Simulated assay, not measured.
Amino acid sequence: MKMLINVAETVVADALRGMAAAHPELTVDVENRVIVRRDAPVADKVALVSGGGSGHEPLHGGFVGPGMLSAACPGEVFTSPVPDQMVRAAAAVDSGRGVLFVVKNYTGDVLNFDMAAELAEDEGIQVAKVLVNDDVAVTDSLYTAGRRGTGATLFVEKLAGAAADEGMPLERVEAVARRVNDRARSFGVALSACSTPAKGGPTFDLPDGELELGVGIHGEPGRERRAMMTSREIADFAVDAVLDDLQPRNPVLLLVNGMGATPLLELYGFHAEVQRVLAERDVAVARVLVGNYVTSLDMAGASVTLCEADEELLRLWDAPVRTPALRWGV
């Protein structure tokens, strides 16, 4: 495998050094692996902290900034960050109004964020936690008990971040985050396996001419493997899987997400098919985001995330955001 790296052992540190150079609006602590808004702590505002294994960029570090996260903690590739990172991040961004931890449902993330919350509270920081578990593909997986956390993480971070910017107290910001997660569902499809720097090759075997329906963002098995399908057929399968579980009665936010190696030419074509299915199912789409936002290194494929929206959530979605990977209204 050819990779644009020096050595596998320094991939995350090298990326953080590059991020620091590209985004002076962030404070990037390469040694301790914490990415923080340079203006943190923001007075009289609830702070949001998230994190997870590297390899899913721009999640989470690319979503640090006004309107989204206050800080992010990157772990090693596909490996949870450690509690010390999370406590350090919480201390750096807490203005006295509390910190919300946004946690994807993977065992390592859950355990380490739980421990970090206890340690932070011992230091006098009020902490609330929201678990993201939106993936309808499988109930349990190699990395989780219960549903995996995937594309809805972006919706939770954006909408809760906007709520915090409006000055909502911690309990209301937490309630917004929980409501978003409760109303969001995702389904992913892999056309190829991903390759980690440490392994130097594919992390699982996906033969030519086959795809994985319901794949996880670490390459976890999904519902089934099939012979390669058309974009139209994949959209029918993925959207039906989401709608069978969500059954929205209001317009939805739509994320058509690339897994890392799928070009926009293909993603936009897939988006057209997703829109067709939603129209056929009488589901109105209020807002759309298409691109690589919650990735799996160099995996080819895509995921679909829907979030049933109300007037408040639409207002929070439209609120200004200024991060390396997501920005509008500023």
Rank of each mutant, 00 (worst) to 15 (best):
M1E: 12
E9Y: 07
T10L: 14
A13R: 15
D14W: 05
R17H: 12
A20G: 14
A22Y: 03
E25I: 10
T27H: 11
D29R: 04
N32C: 11
R33K: 07
V34G: 03
A40M: 10
P41Y: 06
V42I: 05
A43D: 13
K45L: 04
V49H: 05
S50R: 09
L59I: 11
G61T: 01
F63W: 13
G65K: 09
P66E: 11
A71F: 00
E76K: 14
E76F: 06
T79Y: 04
T79S: 09
R88P: 04
A90V: 02
A91H: 06
R97K: 14
G98H: 09
K104R: 05
G108Y: 03
F113S: 02
E121L: 07
D122F: 08
Q126E: 08
A128E: 15
V130R: 14
V130C: 12
L131M: 00
V132I: 06
D135I: 08
D135L: 04
D135H: 11
V136Y: 08
V136E: 15
A137W: 14
A137P: 00
R148T: 08
G151R: 15
T153C: 08
T153R: 09
L154G: 09
L154N: 14
F155C: 12
V156M: 10
K158G: 07
L159C: 10
A162Y: 02
A164M: 11
M168I: 01
P169M: 03
E171P: 01
V173C: 13
A175W: 06
V176L: 14
V176Y: 13
D182W: 03
R183M: 05
R185T: 12
G188C: 12
L191E: 11
P197N: 08
K199W: 02
T203K: 06
F204Y: 15
L206M: 08
P207R: 01
E210P: 04
E210Q: 11
H218E: 00
G219H: 12
E220K: 06
G222F: 10
R225I: 07
R225L: 09
A227T: 13
S231V: 05
I234Y: 00
I234P: 03
F237N: 06
A238P: 09
D244G: 13
D244P: 05
P248D: 09
R249I: 03
P251Q: 03
V252T: 04
L254I: 09
P263S: 08
E266D: 05
Y268I: 10
Y268G: 00
G269Q: 11
E273W: 03
V274T: 01
V274P: 08
V274M: 00
V274D: 12
R281I: 00
R281H: 04
R281Y: 02
V283H: 01
R287A: 12
R287D: 09
V290W: 15
Y293C: 15
V294R: 06
V294I: 15
M299G: 15
A302M: 13
A302E: 11
A302S: 08
T305R: 15
L306R: 14
D310M: 04
E311P: 09
E312T: 15
E312M: 02
L313N: 08
L314V: 04
L314F: 04
R315N: 07
R322E: 09
T323S: 10
P324E: 14
R327D: 03
R327M: 03
W328Q: 03
W328F: 13
W328D: 08
